[in-house]
Amino acid sequence: MNSKRGFSSVVFTLVVLFFYLPLVILILFSFNHSKTMSWGGLSFRWYEELFFHSRTLWNSVFNSVIVALSSGLISTIVGTLGAVGISWYDFRGKRMLQVAGFLPLILPEIIIGVSLLIFFAGIKLKLSLFTVFLAHTTFNIPFVLLMVTARLEEFDFSIVEAAYDLGAREIDALLRIIIPLAFPGILSGFLIAVTLSLEDFVITFFVAGPGASTLPLHVYSMIRFGVSPVINALSVVIIAATAVLALSAGNVFKYIVRK
């Protein structure tokens, strides 16, 4: 191996350490008896606190899941149909729609949060979990659009023409050909949408109403009071949950790719 390879492996190792060290420390100190970040003996008290004495936290988890699933579903439907239309049809204003569907991906989150806040105030829609759902669906749609469009681009339109040629109506082509073909794209679009929704802090911060706290909002309010070992315990639970989900999603993905 040449020297460049040696240099790059050193940098890569450092990068991986940089990525994982904070998480490892978090995990370690979730089992710490002391309330501070100095070691005070092994203990599960923060897990007990997390699971049995953190009702508002679990309430925010519930809110997050509701918003993630509903906005994931709606954005997947709207985004998938839009991707089919944009990929395989010509219509007036297509170019503009493509730009409008791409712009939310690149604009800073705060712009979307602020503009929606002002918009909701303008139409006198009270901030609630529903406005969070509307906002999350809005920033999720472009991701679904992107994923499904990328998948559809792998196929030639002649496949759809073949379906019509063989007697398919519009709806037959959609249900029997287009959706099954686009399915890996649709699924990954949905997964990304759910992940982004669970993850979002900035936009939610602006559009969430009182009592509509999501998990990131709740964590934010806890962070403002400094180090809390309950968050350490929560982090471990989240890391474990994402690892399990990631592995199973990885398997699902492998299955789809093989297909």
Partner: peptide, 14 residues
């Protein structure tokens, strides 16, 4: 009542 054999075959991959 006309059917087509497409240049790239256009078989449904799934």
């Amino acid at each position: 009542h006309i059917n087509t054999v497409f240049q790239n075959y256009a078989l449904f991959p799934h």
